[in-house]
């Protein structure tokens, strides 16, 4: 156990370092960034906001990490969020309880995942094309459910899921933490994670080795749909309304980015859900820097792009290798005293 903890820490060191740097940036633009108060029955502070607002991306990237580990991609998650939110909202508006609404939305999410999974695993359509279908059509389906309006609701149980708190902690934080830990435990305490990696590295050989890749692939897309539906319910509950046009818009790209910042290869294979979740927090912290800096909104995307390019460049294999070479070659030739002497002699 201690061994796995240590290796997990080693795996996520770059992400933890980057997160620390981005949080420090936050602190520099807004010195009160780390202060957390307890007021009006809830924890109140910027750090809590990062955890809370990162929830949709964090939930999406749990499923997305597994999909990408099988060398796939799921572009439909943003649209599935919109569908799930619309389903949950229309169910409570029709007078059902919040439990029914939640279960209904999650079931629809799983159905969407199943659709993607069948297209990819059974009909062998390339994942990027297969999931594009639902990405385009999904928002239309959500619009049909809400009849083109922002469907608002007042059900306190459903609102609790997005805007409420449990012992002072915003509910979305608890939801993504719990789901992240649960999925990590399931794939890492069993052979499931290894089997998923095997499919991503070489599906043909893994099938010859006796892995039922078809069922596993369908399951992976199903989990992605489930995560997206949960994210969709949270987003709708947060604003007490299902906004079919805007809920989860472009969030699939943030989720993919979180997985990539988490150091997972888009070519499939080894993966770390914890690193992806840290990636999601990094993205949210970058958003927070932008909001707190008070810069005009014209700069938002430029700043975000610059920070993310920096993160990706630092993580790129070429730069890593170059850094390693510099460190390895610098040590024996230049002893630590030399620069000091040089400095003194020149003065």
């Amino acid at each position: 156990m201690r061994q796995t903890l240590r290796s997990a820490f080693k795996r996520t060191t770059p992400q933890l370092l980057i997160l620390a740097v981005v949080l420090l940036l936050n602190f520099l633009v807004f010195p009160d960034f780390f202060s957390i108060k307890f007021q009006h029955g809830r924890l109140f502070g910027n750090l809590i906001d990062v955890l809370n607002r990162g929830a949709p991306t964090a939930l999406l990237c749990i499923g997305m990490t597994l999909v990408i580990a099988t060398r796939g991609i799921d572009l439909s998650v943003g649209a599935v969020m919109a569908i799930a939110g619309a389903v949950a909202a229309s169910l409570v508006v029709d007078g059902h309880g919040w439990g029914t609404a939640l279960i209904g939305a999650l079931a629809v999410g799983c159905l969407c995942g199943l659709w993607n999974g069948v297209l990819v695993a059974v009909l062998r359509i390339q994942p990027i094309v297969a999931t594009l279908v639902l990405m385009v059509a999904g928002r239309g389906i959500a619009q049909l459910i809400t009849e083109g309006t922002i469907l608002t609701f007042v059900n306190p149980g459903l609102i609790q899921l997005g805007a409420g708190t449990v012992v002072g902690i915003p509910t979305p934080i608890l939801i993504w933490l719990a789901l992240g830990l649960a999925v990590t435990a399931v794939v890492r305490r069993t052979a499931l994670g290894m089997l998923i990696e095997a499919i991503g590295i070489n599906e043909g050989s893994s099938r010859l080795a006796g892995i039922n890749s078809r069922v596993l692939l369908v399951c992976v897309y199903l989990i992605s749909g489930f995560c997206a539906a949960l994210a969709g319910v949270i987003v709708a509950a947060d604003i007490k309304g299902a906004d079919a046009n805007n809920a989860g818009l472009w969030l699939e790209l943030d989720a993919i980015l979180a997985v990539v910042i988490g150091g997972n290869s888009l070519l499939g294979g080894r993966f770390s859900i914890i690193a992806s979740l840290l990636g999601a927090l990094i993205i949210q912290s970058v958003n927070s820097v932008i909001l707190l800096s008070g810069m005009p909104p014209e700069f938002n995307l430029v700043i975000k792009a610059l920070i993310i390019i920096a993160i990706l460049v630092i993580q790129s294999p070429t730069v890593k290798h170059a850094l390693y070479i510099i460190r390895a070659s610098a040590q024996p030739i230049v002893p630590p005293e030399t620069p000091k002497e040089l400095k003194e002699s020149t003065q």
């Binding site: 009160d32 910027n46 906001d49 987003v235 604003i239 906004d243 805007n246 809920a247 707190l292």
Partner: peptide, 13 residues
């Protein structure tokens, strides 16, 4: 609505 809420939260803080 959702971005309005998120950005207002950061304004308030």
């Amino acid at each position: 609505r959702s971005q309005g809420k998120v950005v207002m939260e950061s304004f308030l803080k």
